Simulated assay, not measured.
Amino acid sequence: MNFSSFSEFMAMGQHGLYVWSAYGISIAVLLLNVGLPWLAKRRYLQDEARRMRREEKR
């Protein structure tokens, strides 16, 4: 496809809403696939560090 202006590119031949929402959802899913395990690992390590400190105090 050849677009003569940026607004035509954004409209994608009247399919812009579908195209850009699909890109947005895909990027959101990819970010969640990276972010959620990273947060879970961080939370796990914090919990383990807390548990180790509690056990050292005993």
Rank of each mutant, 00 (worst) to 15 (best):
residue 1 M to K: 10
residue 1 M to R: 11
residue 2 N to G: 05
residue 2 N to H: 12
residue 3 F to C: 07
residue 4 S to F: 05
residue 5 S to K: 09
residue 5 S to G: 10
residue 6 F to L: 15
residue 6 F to K: 01
residue 6 F to T: 08
residue 6 F to W: 10
residue 7 S to V: 11
residue 7 S to L: 05
residue 8 E to N: 09
residue 9 F to I: 04
residue 9 F to E: 12
residue 9 F to M: 07
residue 10 M to D: 00
residue 10 M to P: 00
residue 11 A to I: 01
residue 11 A to D: 14
residue 13 G to L: 04
residue 14 Q to C: 10
residue 14 Q to H: 08
residue 14 Q to G: 11
residue 15 H to F: 11
residue 15 H to E: 13
residue 16 G to K: 02
residue 17 L to Y: 00
residue 18 Y to W: 12
residue 18 Y to D: 07
residue 18 Y to A: 13
residue 19 V to S: 05
residue 19 V to F: 15
residue 20 W to C: 08
residue 20 W to Y: 05
residue 20 W to K: 05
residue 21 S to W: 11
residue 22 A to K: 07
residue 22 A to V: 02
residue 22 A to P: 01
residue 22 A to R: 10
residue 23 Y to S: 09
residue 23 Y to D: 08
residue 24 G to D: 06
residue 24 G to C: 14
residue 24 G to P: 00
residue 24 G to R: 02
residue 26 S to F: 09
residue 28 A to N: 03
residue 28 A to I: 06
residue 28 A to H: 02
residue 29 V to Y: 04
residue 29 V to A: 12
residue 30 L to T: 07
residue 30 L to M: 11
residue 32 L to P: 02
residue 32 L to N: 06
residue 32 L to G: 05
residue 33 N to I: 12
residue 34 V to W: 15
residue 34 V to F: 14
residue 35 G to D: 09
residue 35 G to M: 13
residue 37 P to Q: 09
residue 38 W to N: 07
residue 38 W to F: 15
residue 38 W to S: 12
residue 39 L to Q: 11
residue 39 L to D: 01
residue 41 K to G: 01
residue 41 K to I: 09
residue 41 K to N: 06
residue 42 R to A: 01
residue 42 R to E: 02
residue 42 R to S: 05
residue 42 R to D: 01
residue 43 R to D: 00
residue 43 R to Y: 02
residue 43 R to S: 01
residue 43 R to L: 03
residue 43 R to W: 00
residue 44 Y to S: 03
residue 44 Y to F: 00
residue 45 L to R: 15
residue 45 L to S: 03
residue 45 L to T: 01
residue 46 Q to E: 02
residue 47 D to I: 01
residue 47 D to A: 14
residue 48 E to T: 06
residue 49 A to P: 04
residue 50 R to I: 04
residue 51 R to E: 14
residue 51 R to K: 09
residue 51 R to M: 13
residue 52 M to F: 11
residue 53 R to I: 14
residue 53 R to V: 13
residue 54 R to Y: 09
residue 54 R to C: 08
residue 54 R to V: 09
residue 54 R to Q: 15
residue 55 E to L: 15
residue 55 E to F: 10
residue 55 E to I: 14
residue 56 E to P: 02
residue 56 E to K: 12
residue 56 E to Y: 12
residue 57 K to S: 12
residue 57 K to P: 05
residue 57 K to A: 12
residue 58 R to N: 05
